[in-house]
């Protein structure tokens, strides 16, 4: 079976500084895959490379078997990959409803249409309502996204990410800055929304990682030093030495 995401020998340098060295990563379809690593290990850079935000210096990235390295983000998105951002990245002046609806439009085939009334497209309406319901923001639908609370904005961020119906979802620290209760809520939400899809997640909270992930990859200095099930990672001496220390026992 072809992997959902296949990263082969990817390198990325900014000037003389090599951020990513010989990165190899394989995420199977339907898998929940977590990428962990110390600060500055290149986790967000890895996300940016896979989603097309930046281009690799060398190497190759495949999405469902198709080469996507070198493509623009929207081209990769149209091929079925959607990502969220570590820093909340919503459409601040638009309402919650419009935020989600914008993310639904391409996937429902309306593209750049300027001859259709966006308010009367039944499938768009239905899907937007459904997503809002799923992220528990229906009661806030007419509020400008910029006025939401932080936790609500994070939920909206996830909502926008999944709204297009992509088969591969990448979430960059979805619970960062959340309280314990909010984190629990968010994890339940992520678990439910990514049912039947491939999930790649960057996360600092180890309880989230070990509770959610089927497989974990450990990134240190731009290189994946280990990849495996949570048990394998827990028992891996290289990981313990490099990163986990006493945190996981």
């Amino acid at each position: 079976m072809t992997a959902a995401i296949q990263v082969n020998a990817v390198e990325k340098s900014f000037g003389n500084v090599q951020i990513i060295r010989d990165l190899n990563l394989s995420v199977a379809k339907g898998e929940r895959h977590a990428i962990i690593g110390p600060n500055g290990a290149g986790k967000s850079t890895t996300f940016n490379l896979i989603s097309g935000h930046i281009k690799p210096t060398s190497g190759e990235i495949r999405l469902n078997g198709e080469v996507t390295s070198g493509l623009r983000p929207f081209e990769i998105n149209r091929r079925g990959l959607s990502r969220s951002f570590q820093v909340t990245n919503v459409f601040a002046r638009m309402t919650v409803w419009e935020n989600v609806r914008c993310a639904v439009l391409w996937a429902t085939g309306h593209r750049y249409a300027f001859w259709k009334n966006v308010d009367t497209l039944p499938e768009v309406k239905q899907r937007t309502a459904q997503i809002l319901d799923e992220i528990h923001l229906s009661h806030r639908r007419d509020v400008p996204a910029g006025l939401l609370t932080y936790a609500e904005q994070r939920e909206l961020e996830i909502g926008i990410t999944i709204a297009g119906g992509a088969s591969v979802i990448m979430l960059d620290e979805p619970t960062a800055g959340m309280s314990h209760a909010e984190t629990e809520r968010a994890v339940a939400l992520i678990r439910r929304l990514t049912e039947g899809r491939t999930l790649v997640i960057v996360e600092h909270d180890m309880s989230v990682v070990f509770g959610l992930a089927d497989r974990i990859s450990v990134l240190v200095y731009g290189h994946i030093i280990a990849s495996g099930t949570p048990e394998e990672i827990r028992g891996n001496p290289k990981v313990k030495e490099a990163y986990l220390g006493e945190e996981v026992d």
């Binding site: 929207f74 919503v90 601040a92 914008c102």
Partner: peptide, 10 residues
């Protein structure tokens, strides 16, 4: 509002 994010919704 956010041209960067637009690229990630297709």
């Amino acid at each position: 509002d956010n041209p960067e994010r637009v690229e990630f919704i297709g």
